[in-house]
Design a binder for these strands. Sequence first.
RNA 1: GGGGUGUUAGCUCAGCUGGUUCAGAGCACCUGCCUUACAAGCAGGGGGUCACUGGUUCGAAUCCAGUACGCCCCA
Length: 879
Amino acid sequence: MSIAKTYNPKETEEKWYKTWMENGFFRSKPNPRKQPYTVVIPPPNVTGVLHMGHMLNNTIQDILIRRARMQGKEACWVPGTDHASIATEARVVAMLKEKGIAKTDLTREEFLEYAWEWKDKYGGIILEQLKKLGASCDWDRTRFTMEPDLTDAVIKVFVDLYRKNKVYRGVRMVNWDPMGLTAISDEEVIPKETVAKMYHLRYFLEGPSQTMGSDYITVATSRPETIMADVAVAVNPNDERYKHLIGRNVMIPLLNRAIPIIADEYVSVDFGTGCLKVTPAHDLNDYELGQRHSLPVIDILNDNGTLNEKAVLYVGQDRFAARRNIVKDLQEAELLADVKEYPSILQTSERTGAVIEPKLSMQWWVKMDAMAKPALDAVMNDDIKLHPPKFKNMYRSWMENVRDWCISRQLWWGQRIPAYYLPDGSFVVAENLQEALDMARTQTENPDLTEADLRQDEDVLDTWFSSWLWPISVFDGFKDPDNKDINYYYPTNDLVTAPEILFFWVARMIMAGYEYRKEMPFKNVYLTGIVRDAQGRKMSKSLGNSPDPLDLIEKYGADGVRTGMLYSSPAGNDLLFDEKLCEQGRNFSNKIWNAFRLISSWEINNELENPNETAIAWFEAKFNLGLSQMEEHFEKFRMSDALMTVYKLVWDDFCSSYLEMIKPAYQQPIDAATLKATHQFMENVLKVLHPFMPFITEEIWHELKERPIKDCLIVAPWPKVGKVDVILLEKMDRVLDVVAGIRNIRNQKNIPNNKALPLHVKTQSAHYYEGFESIITKLANLEEVNYSENSLENAISFVEGPDEFFVPMEGNIDLAAEKERLEKELEYAKGFLDAVSKKLSNERFVNGAPAIVLEKEYQKKADAEAKIKALEQSLAALV
RNA sequence: GGGGUGUUAGCUCAGCUGGUUCAGAGCACCUGCCUUACAAGCAGGGGGUCACUGGUUCGAAUCCAGUACGCCCCA
């Protein structure tokens, strides 16, 4: 049989993904005999297409799931998408616009019809893409945050929290787009750097002036047109300039309304004039300041950005026209002291380009304090572990200063808030209209109320208000709180997500978990870094620096891309992605492929003795050591290190060392025992590689020998760590160093590899090399090995441990160079001995250091002395 | 402004509660090889004042303080 010289991922990937699906290997159902291992996917946005962040995140989840599955756990990875109200609505609005339809022309119902149509058409793309990556999700469990069951859950929770007084209605500052006449989210606000003008205005003190010339204070503002909404002037309590004025009143320029001077730490002394006019209706910080000091709120703007009658002056003018006019009037009244330019950031609307107006409006909120408490404790006491733990601090500072959560959005795509307003202005909150009507009738004592009298809230709920229920709702834990699935799979095990949403999402899931299941939603949170380009820039569509993951898979194979993603992604650190990493991944695939080719090319000869016992015992030890290191990395969620451990185990130990040791001469057969052991090793190697590189390993698993189709690697048992023969490993380390020493001589002296060399070993303990001689001979291509207690003349030598190795050169030696090399080595050894001796002659060290350390130092000293002696003899022999 | 976190080879990072010849790995680089598993490869090699300054200690990349620079979160 002939096997392709390079691995061909494409058909392999399709074939095995299909086979895994057909055999239901991804599927999971509660199995009391097995330990559950559960991961819920961070639901990608339905509008999304696969980007590098998803690649990293889902590769990691797949690795965890595949390993758990092989470990014999009931592995369940639940996939799904979230409805992404803002993004999806924007997408649908754009699509409608192309068709010449404006959102305002449609009713809510008509719009939603278009939106669902859009979702059905495009919403599944990203999940299909995940399959290309090899993601072994239980696709039968795919959920969507706006599907009926999950919507019911959201409504139920809203109503429940409202009744527990944890949801309330209150005023909040939103980003108002006066042109689009809608509130928009922070994400839709585009900051633009501009040079703004700072106007210095004179506010005269109320009452009789004390001294001439100091009877006013100067307030700096960039928005003079809002002075009519002023309710106070604030100064820093430590500001010597104004301390004496705190508590007095000043008059608003032009308007001549009196407002108080108040003191607040918020005001910075060195910005502007140190006097801040407080306009709670038109600035978020001012609003909070106003709340702290119980100041009134005067809103002087209409929704379209013109001034209303509360402004008294400039009524009906647009805010910018009003600004021009008031500046002129202030100047004429000599109330404008100065105008200064300063760099500022202007917030504009992504939709219309209009300057955003901070505007107070009625919103729905979730009270956070009570729910935050158990969620904070769970993380601080490590019930829920964050990986890496450095995020604990960040988590704590956020949870300790948590603000109430605004959950209403002025959109249509999403779950409509189940609050129903009555004709008298009051409202009821209920799971459905019928219930709402009953409540309304009771509340108003008016049995004649009809459905038509109720008006449901126009807003929808924040998408996070769906996502925070995800680990519970995907198992129908709200619909049926005691069902088999939720009881078995919850709490889930590991969550893999990005640090940016630690608060938005992770913290809130923890809150929901304790609120509704009295239990954490997951035990570990693995936080991945941000995928950046090689220059460290965040990958983004606008920069165009993000490769298309599917192109990469096409080019390097899914296995290659998976390993490429992982090579440089320590937990929580950003990953500087470079296509070269995928290339490295592909090369690794190829390496594995060729190891397989070699093994499968061997003909067996049952007559032969096994000459490879040492090599076999060694690799077994090496494998067990590697496996145990890998398990340790997995325990700590150090995926990159786990991969690197296998990488080196496979490439260096298995391929470069083990296979070279046992490889029969060209076209020679191999003995049965060695072949059997090697097959076993190969299978074990494939197993530990499988979570990282599922496709190639499954392919080789089946190529290696005929197996029934159900006997797939994906469900093969994970190897257990066996005994590690440490002594054997140590000996082989020295042996391989000897081999490297000889190869080095070859390199330096340009001796071709196919020329066999004699080796002379000067040693007191030739038996040390028993069992290894054939290995050294084979790897270094020797013709003979001699042992003696003497040096050899006319040879190049090197020292390993207590022994010295000589390769005769028949006069082909550069004596001077050789001498220099040995002297250099000798000098280093002497220096080292000096340092050790000094340490050992230091009484305080000898008294203070633990016995183990001392012992090591004495050993070091003895080794160094032996080495020096050997080197000196070699030098002597040179002459 | 507040808080967090980091600075180790050209790049990306390990280095746990101070103590092995401790200064490491992968990639990149240099040299020599198309040696019938693999040039997507093999063999070998060079490369770092562990950001800076001071302190604790018999001993510091590791602990402490300060400085510089970077990143993240919140305002």
